[in-house]
């Protein structure tokens, strides 16, 4: 520490005025100040400056600041959260014990009906789960087969089949034309997908939101 005749450094006076000096150094500074008017005056000056600096205000941006920021922020919702929100939007989730009780009761109605029907069916002698399963598989196979047959017939009888066949035959005879057609079709598809992506995910509406939010779960 400096002798009483030697003044304390400006740095030490600042630190003392700010209250960041401690321990033996603090005791030495205080002992020096008792006998040094110049340093006491220096401390007073620093305290006045620090007090004024401490009153500097926080400045406010314009009122529209927050909205302007949010319009430029891309909020990415994790997939799990979006799926959960989508499921929740499909079903009105109960919020109180009473609505939970009502929802449980409502869910039990179809369970009771199906259970009663199953009991009634299987109470007949000769009706077993195996028999019922075989019957259901047979009916389902019949339905799928009928659908395939009807669709095939409709396609073969369609007025578009002959022109399409003609075009395919022409393309098969000319590999160059086939490549050009496939390339053009692929390019147009890629262009359409790119335009769709730009419109949905990168272009913003006037409220600053991407159209993607319309498709979010």
């Amino acid at each position: 520490m400096k002798a009483a005749t030697e003044h304390l450094s400006d740095t030490l006076l600042q630190d003392y005025a700010e209250g960041v000096v401690s321990g033996a150094e603090l005791a030495a500074v205080e002992a020096h100040l008792v006998g040094c008017t110049g340093c006491r005056s220096g401390v007073a000056g620093w305290r006045a400056l620090l007090a004024n600096l401490g009153e500097l205000p926080r400045l406010a941006p314009s009122a529209a600041f927050a909205d302007q920021v949010m319009a430029r922020v891309k909020i990415r919702t994790p997939l799990a959260v979006r799926v959960l929100a989508w499921v929740r939007s499909l079903f009105p989730f109960p919020a109180t014990p009473r609505t939970w009780a009502l929802a449980t009761a409502a869910a039990m109605v179809p369970v009771a009906i199906v259970g009663g029907a199953a009991y009634w069916v299987f109470s007949y002698p000769g009706v077993t789960p195996g028999n019922v399963l075989t019957f259901l598989v047979w009916r389902a196979g019949d339905a799928v087969g009928g659908f395939v047959a009807q669709t095939t017939t409709a396609l073969l009888e369609s007025r578009f089949v002959l022109p399409a066949y003609t075009i395919l035959e022409a393309l098969a005879r000319s590999p160059g034309a086939a490549v050009a057609t496939v390339s053009t079709f692929s390019a147009l598809t890629a262009l359409a997908l790119w335009v769709l992506y730009r419109n949905v995910f990168t272009a913003r509406s006037v409220d600053g939101r991407h159209a993607a939010h319309l498709f979010a779960f």
Binding site: P57, R58, L59, A60, P61, F65, A66, V69, M70
Partner: peptide, 11 residues
């Protein structure tokens, strides 16, 4: 977060 830090950051 914006409301907490818009003044400090702007200042």
């Amino acid at each position: 977060l914006l409301s907490r830090y818009q003044r400090p950051v702007f200042s």
